[in-house]
């Protein structure tokens, strides 16, 4: 069991190290002639005016909140799904109730129109 996690640890280091090498290698051999025009922020040739960090849509925030709720829900459901073979039927139904309660929330969100793009 622990050997597996050591392997994952090594793998993570390799997976991070490989692209790091691939990204730094060209930095050594490629030309490097920066100038002000070249480093301008790309905006189809127009000079950038005003603040770059544009106002953010509230909509995105709602998606993130809903995602958080459903993410936690699935975290609860994974142990339930794994142990399903050892559970009596009513315990399965308890899991179903858990899902249905949250589906009601989804229906509410849809009814409110909070998920529609505006």
């Amino acid at each position: 069991m622990q050997a597996y996690w050591v392997y994952i640890g090594i793998f993570l280091i390799v997976a991070l190290g490989f692209p790091t090498i691939a990204v730094t290698l060209p930095a050594l051999i490629s030309p490097r002639k920066p100038n002000r025009r070249k480093q301008e922020v790309y905006e189809c040739g127009i000079e950038t005016k005003g603040n770059v960090r544009v106002q953010f849509k509230t909509q995105y925030y709602i998606y993130a909140l809903l995602f958080l709720v459903f993410d936690i829900e699935t975290i609860f459901l994974f142990p339930w799904a794994v142990s399903l073979g050892k559970l009596p039927l009513f315990a399965v139904i308890e899991g179903v109730i858990f899902i249905v309660i949250l589906l009601a929330g989804l229906v509410y969100a849809l009814r409110e129109g909070a998920l529609a793009w505006s």
């Binding site: 997976a15 692209p19 790091t20 051999i29 490629s30 030309p31």
Partner: peptide
């Protein structure tokens, strides 16, 4: 070709985050 391309970092970029992002994306 891509190995010999010049890196361009735009003005005002957060350099550390800018360089970590592509590595993290593939990792």
């Amino acid at each position: 070709k891509i190995f010999t391309k010049e890196y361009i970092t735009p003005q005002g970029a957060d350099k550390v985050t800018f360089n970590i992002a592509p590595v993290l994306a593939i990792a």
